[in-house]
């Protein structure tokens, strides 16, 4: 029974030429085009409906709330126009958190991609236990960011601190190097994932190109510069985009590792720009996502937090799309 049904689908053209489809067509419930469309939407539904409900709807209502005094549904909502946005221009904490996030993103993107690419070069060589190394480098990525933060706050304070190996006299998490401590942890977590992208790209480089260059007498460095790098440019675009966006959205590890601290004086140039009499305390690792969370949840100021989130969205979109646009230009088609 089944075989009879299956055979015509294997070679449809041959069968189609021999037997016209007249009787079947009569039985068609819908025209071919309409039925295709129906199928298309039917298969799309299971993702489209949640996407509309969980992403698009909150996104649009969120933009609406940023123009109101919304309190999370506890009090009547009133339209306040641009008030929430106007307040942001003099909010030293928000502006500073943006400045710190940009610094963090630059450090983080550099660190992760350098480490990931180096690891990828290493594990694509003909080593013993390559797969073991790959799995090992990838493993930290399977642990949640919150857990990693708590884990490393223990490592920094106890294991590497004065009472442990004594690498640090005081915890780096409350020193001026807290940002670097954060970057190190996130790199440890995320580099393995980005490494996988680079491995895939490196393995796609045709052997013959490499062999040809070797015959022409290119050394390892020349091969890397003139063959490997241009051919993995596509992977760079993807990896840079991913690392940039996740760096800007960094929340969980900050929350559990540094809680936005340590608090330091706002830089003099920003103090002057904002017209402050004397410096005020700001959190040196309080990145934008954490700042928004804090403003909404801890202070119950949901509408202002929402306005901050909208500004954040616009700036992040511009930065990340700009990055993709410029990187695309450097890619080489084989």
């Amino acid at each position: 029974m089944e075989k009879q049904v299956m055979t015509p689908t294997i070679k449809p053209e041959v069968v189609g030429k021999k037997k016209p489809f007249v009787p079947k067509k009569r039985r068609e419930f819908l025209s071919r085009k309409a039925s295709d469309k129906l199928w298309f939407w039917l298969f799309l539904m299971p993702v489209l409906i949640p996407f509309l409900l969980m992403v698009i709807t909150p996104f649009i209502t969120g933009i609406y709330y940023s123009f109101t005094n919304w309190t999370g549904g506890l009090a009547p909502t009133e339209w306040v126009g641009l008030d929430n946005y106007r307040g942001l221009t003099s909010d030293h904490r928000f502006i500073y958190s943006f400045y710190r996030t940009v610094i963090y993103a630059i450090l983080n993107v550099l660190a992760i991609n350098l480490v990931a690419f180096a690891l990828a070069l290493l594990v694509t060589r003909k080593l013993k236990l390559t797969n073991f190394y790959r799995a090992g480098f990838f493993l930290p990525n399977l642990i949640g960011g919150l857990v990693i933060g708590y884990l490393w706050s223990f490592i920094y304070r106890i294991v590497l601190g004065a009472s442990g190996l004594g690498l640090f006299s005081s915890s780096p998490l409350v020193s001026r190097y807290a940002m670097f401590a954060l970057v190190a942890v996130v790199t440890w977590q995320y580099a393995g994932y980005i490494m996988m992208i680079y491995i895939a790209a490196l393995q796609n480089i045709p052997e013959d190109l490499i062999e040809a260059s070797q015959i022409d007498g290119a050394n390892a460095l020349q091969r890397l510069r003139n063959i490997t790098l241009p051919l993995v440019a596509q992977a760079f675009t993807v990896a840079l985009f991913l690392t940039l966006v996740t760096a800007f959205k960094q929340f969980d590890t900050v929350f559990s590792l540094t809680r936005g601290g340590p608090d330091i004086d706002i830089p003099v140039w920003l103090q002057n720009a904002l017209g402050m009499e004397f410096p005020r305390a700001v959190g040196s690792t309080r990145l934008v996502a954490f700042q928004i969370y804090n403003w909404g949840i801890s202070r119950g100021n949901f509408a202002v937090a929402q306005a901050q989130a909208v500004v954040f969205f616009v700036l992040l979109s511009v930065i990340s799309l700009g990055q993709v646009y410029f990187n695309k230009k450097r890619e080489v088609e084989l």
Binding site: V174, G261, P262, D263, I264, D265, R299, G300
Partner: peptide
């Protein structure tokens, strides 16, 4: 006190004092 005032506005000043920054 208003939500967050003690923990997010005053707390950092205490921290700076404890660390000897101010």
């Amino acid at each position: 006190m208003p939500p967050g005032f003690g923990m997010d506005d005053l707390g950092p000043v205490y921290f700076q004092f404890a660390q000897g920054q101010i």
